[in-house]
Amino acid sequence: MSLFEDQFDIIENILPYDGVTSYYGKIFSEEEANCYFDKLMSEIEWKSDEAVIFGKLIETKRKVALYGSEAFRYTYSGRTKTALPWNNTLLEIKEKIESISGEMFNSCLLNLYHNGSEGMAYHSDGEKDLKDNSAISSLSFGAERKFNFKHKTTKELVSLILENGSLLMMKEATQKFWLHRLPTTTKIIKPRISLTFRTIDQFK
Rank of each mutant, 00 (worst) to 15 (best):
S2D: 09
S2A: 12
F4Q: 14
E5P: 08
Q7F: 14
D9G: 06
E12V: 11
L15D: 00
D18Q: 11
G19A: 09
G19C: 09
K26R: 15
K26S: 09
I27G: 01
I27H: 03
S29V: 04
S29L: 08
E30R: 11
E30G: 14
A33Y: 03
C35E: 13
F37L: 09
K39I: 12
L40E: 02
M41I: 15
M41E: 15
E43I: 14
I44H: 11
E45A: 12
G55P: 00
I58L: 08
K61R: 14
L66D: 00
A71H: 14
R73T: 15
R73Y: 13
A83V: 11
A83Q: 02
L84G: 06
P85M: 06
P85D: 07
N87P: 05
N88P: 09
L90E: 04
E92D: 15
K94A: 03
E95Q: 15
I97M: 11
E98W: 08
G102T: 10
G102F: 10
E103P: 00
E103K: 07
F105A: 03
F105P: 02
L110I: 02
L110H: 07
L112I: 05
Y113L: 08
H114K: 14
N115W: 06
G116S: 07
G116L: 01
S117Q: 15
S117V: 12
G119Y: 09
A121T: 09
Y122H: 09
S124E: 09
E127G: 06
E127P: 04
L130P: 02
K131N: 10
N133F: 13
N133I: 09
S134G: 11
S134C: 12
S134P: 01
A135F: 08
A135D: 03
I136C: 03
I136P: 00
S138P: 03
F141A: 01
F141R: 00
G142Q: 00
G142P: 04
G142F: 04
G142K: 04
G142R: 00
R145M: 07
K152G: 08
K155F: 12
E156H: 14
E156I: 04
E156C: 06
E156N: 12
V158A: 09
L162E: 05
L162Q: 00
L162K: 00
E163G: 07
N164E: 10
N164L: 06
L168K: 01
L168T: 01
L168M: 07
K171F: 12
E172Y: 10
T174A: 07
T174E: 05
F177R: 01
T185S: 15
T186L: 14
I188H: 08
I189P: 07
R192F: 08
R192H: 07
I193G: 03
S194F: 03
S194L: 01
L195Y: 00
T196M: 05
F197N: 00
R198D: 00
T199V: 11
T199Q: 07
I200S: 03
Q202I: 11
Q202F: 12
